[in-house]
Amino acid sequence: MSDFLSQFGELFASYDVLGAFWVNIQLTFWAGLIALVVGCVLALFRISPVPSLAWVGTAYVTVFRNTPLTIIMVFMTLGVWGQLKIQVSDDFPTNFFWLAVIGLAIYHAAFVCESIRSGVNTVPLGQAEAARAIGLSFLPAARMVILPQAFRGAIAPLGNTLIALIKNSTVAAAAGVATETSTLLKNMIEFNSSLIYAIFLTFAVGYVILVIPVGLLTTTLSRRLAVRR
């Protein structure tokens, strides 16, 4: 047993495990932030009374929700950077980090949009009618009456999207981010294959530690913030 535990000591001594997880946390944070903003706008488009905006929202969700994340991430490097020569930063690692963030954000914005829309469906139609009846037009009614309630109803699905994003951040390896966990996992297996169980456990437990609080927090929040009717 102590022999097995010492394997972890060996791994943590020779690899920057915490540093790798920190990269995934940063990827998740920035991608999540952008996805939340873009997803909100998309959700507004989809529920808006303007048919062309609704169409744009639906088209975006259909395209990006159904495209494999790996393809989007590879496209960010080979397509956006390689072919289109779009560069976010002159520093190589920074450049790929942000390309990965954008790729993750583009993909998850579709899921954020659908989560918020499911939250909108928890708001009774009468709320929108009452908002319109006192003279609020679409945007103010959405901002002050519909979305605040929709968000509270969308906390659980948004939490699911965040959990997926945390784990999907490992796909950043496909966008050339070399310092995050899945690349580290690959290196460990390549150079320390005798420690295979310890290696798997390290990453499995690491992600469980990251994800469980998110699940607990969103469950608590969605219960506490639920709109009483």
């Binding site: 009774p124 009468g126 009618e129 009846a133 009456v145």
Partner: peptide, 12 residues
């Protein structure tokens, strides 16, 4: 002014 059957007060 409009008053609804189901009140429709802003719940939040």
């Amino acid at each position: 002014g409009m008053v609804f059957q189901s009140f429709n007060l802003f719940a939040h």
